[in-house]
Simulated scan of single mutants.
Amino acid sequence: MSDTKKRIREAALSLFNTQGLVNVRLQHIADGAGMSVGNLAYHYRNKETIVAALYQELSQQLRDLMKEFQIVPLFEHWNRQILQTYGFQSHYIFFFLDTLEIIRAYPAIGRSYRAYLHWQEAQLRQSLEFNVARGALIPPPFPEAYSQLARHIRASQDGWFTRRIICEEASLDQEAYAADTWSLIRPFFTPMGEREFAQIHLPLYDPTWLSQPGPSDS
């Protein structure tokens, strides 16, 4: 049964990613999985249960990644976490392109996702505060500065694919994703943070980006 369920989820994920959630019916998924609708319904009674299973996969992978990163959130580890987050989001891209439709249609998923977002922001804020304490980031320039930055990082990453597609920006690769995320953090670098950042091998799409001085250089 587990192999059959996996085949169903893989077929659904491929269709959701390429055609959009609202355009896919159970018949399409059954055809993609090579089975009848009745057989599919034995394993997943409706589309919501399939979406919920895919969301559970995604959220667990993202939580595990964030927990691993939190152990030692140095810049090198942070960059690895950013690139792996891109990988998970691109693999489940339908969820980030159709987020509003999903949480409206499936309230239980919406509640779970909102709880995850609050948890994610708290973890990001702790990582920022850790890097302030070790001297890689400047002290907060105003109250709640790093709470706001954590929120901006989360919003930028979760809405990244939608924004790039709407604006018809050519690059949807991890280099652009990493560069956009780091561009939010770099204004808070100390000279120590700049030196550490310069030692990371970043897959950036703009080779001149690293050479541009940040505020801490002035």
Results as ranks from 00 to 15, higher is better:
residue 21 L to V: 09
residue 21 L to P: 12
residue 22 V to D: 15
residue 22 V to G: 03
residue 23 N to T: 03
residue 23 N to P: 06
residue 23 N to K: 02
residue 24 V to K: 01
residue 24 V to W: 03
residue 24 V to T: 09
residue 24 V to R: 07
residue 24 V to Y: 00
residue 25 R to K: 12
residue 25 R to W: 08
residue 25 R to P: 01
residue 25 R to M: 04
residue 25 R to L: 00
residue 25 R to H: 11
residue 26 L to I: 11
residue 26 L to H: 08
residue 26 L to Q: 13
residue 26 L to T: 14
residue 26 L to V: 06
residue 27 Q to M: 03
residue 27 Q to K: 11
residue 28 H to C: 03
residue 28 H to Y: 07
residue 29 I to P: 01
residue 29 I to F: 02
residue 29 I to D: 07
residue 30 A to H: 15
residue 30 A to D: 12
residue 30 A to C: 08
residue 30 A to M: 10
residue 30 A to W: 07
residue 31 D to M: 10
residue 31 D to R: 05
residue 31 D to W: 03
residue 31 D to F: 03
residue 32 G to S: 10
residue 32 G to K: 04
residue 32 G to Q: 09
residue 32 G to N: 11
residue 32 G to P: 15
residue 33 A to H: 13
residue 34 G to R: 02
residue 34 G to L: 04
residue 35 M to Y: 06
residue 36 S to R: 04
residue 36 S to Q: 13
residue 36 S to T: 11
residue 36 S to D: 14
residue 36 S to L: 02
residue 37 V to D: 05
residue 37 V to Q: 15
residue 38 G to D: 04
residue 38 G to I: 08
residue 38 G to S: 15
residue 38 G to W: 05
residue 39 N to A: 14
residue 39 N to C: 01
residue 39 N to F: 03
residue 39 N to L: 05
residue 39 N to Q: 13
residue 40 L to F: 08
residue 40 L to R: 14
residue 40 L to D: 07
residue 41 A to H: 10
residue 41 A to N: 14
residue 41 A to W: 00
residue 41 A to V: 04
residue 41 A to M: 15
residue 42 Y to F: 11
residue 42 Y to H: 13
residue 42 Y to I: 13
residue 42 Y to L: 13
residue 42 Y to N: 12
residue 43 H to R: 12
residue 43 H to T: 01
residue 43 H to S: 06
residue 43 H to K: 04
residue 43 H to A: 09
residue 44 Y to A: 09
residue 44 Y to W: 12
residue 44 Y to E: 02
residue 44 Y to S: 11
residue 45 R to D: 08
residue 45 R to K: 09
residue 45 R to F: 00
residue 45 R to L: 02
residue 45 R to H: 09
residue 45 R to Y: 02
residue 45 R to E: 11
residue 46 N to V: 04
residue 46 N to P: 04
residue 46 N to Y: 06
residue 47 K to N: 07
residue 47 K to H: 12
residue 47 K to F: 07
residue 47 K to L: 05
residue 48 E to N: 05
residue 48 E to W: 03
residue 48 E to C: 01
residue 48 E to F: 11
residue 49 T to A: 15
residue 50 I to C: 01
residue 50 I to R: 03
residue 50 I to W: 04
residue 50 I to T: 00
residue 50 I to P: 02
residue 51 V to T: 05
residue 51 V to E: 05
residue 51 V to W: 02
residue 52 A to P: 02
residue 52 A to H: 10
residue 52 A to L: 06
residue 52 A to R: 05
residue 52 A to I: 03
residue 53 A to Y: 02
residue 53 A to L: 05
residue 53 A to E: 07
residue 54 L to V: 15
residue 54 L to E: 12
residue 56 Q to C: 11
residue 56 Q to S: 15
residue 56 Q to R: 13
residue 57 E to K: 01
residue 57 E to A: 05
residue 57 E to M: 12
residue 57 E to P: 08
residue 58 L to C: 13
residue 58 L to S: 02
residue 59 S to E: 14
residue 59 S to F: 09
residue 59 S to L: 07
residue 59 S to V: 14
residue 59 S to A: 10
residue 60 Q to S: 15
residue 60 Q to V: 05
residue 61 Q to I: 00
residue 61 Q to A: 08
residue 61 Q to W: 00
residue 61 Q to D: 09
residue 61 Q to R: 13
residue 61 Q to Y: 00
residue 61 Q to K: 07
residue 62 L to R: 01
residue 62 L to T: 12
residue 62 L to S: 12
residue 62 L to W: 00
residue 62 L to G: 07
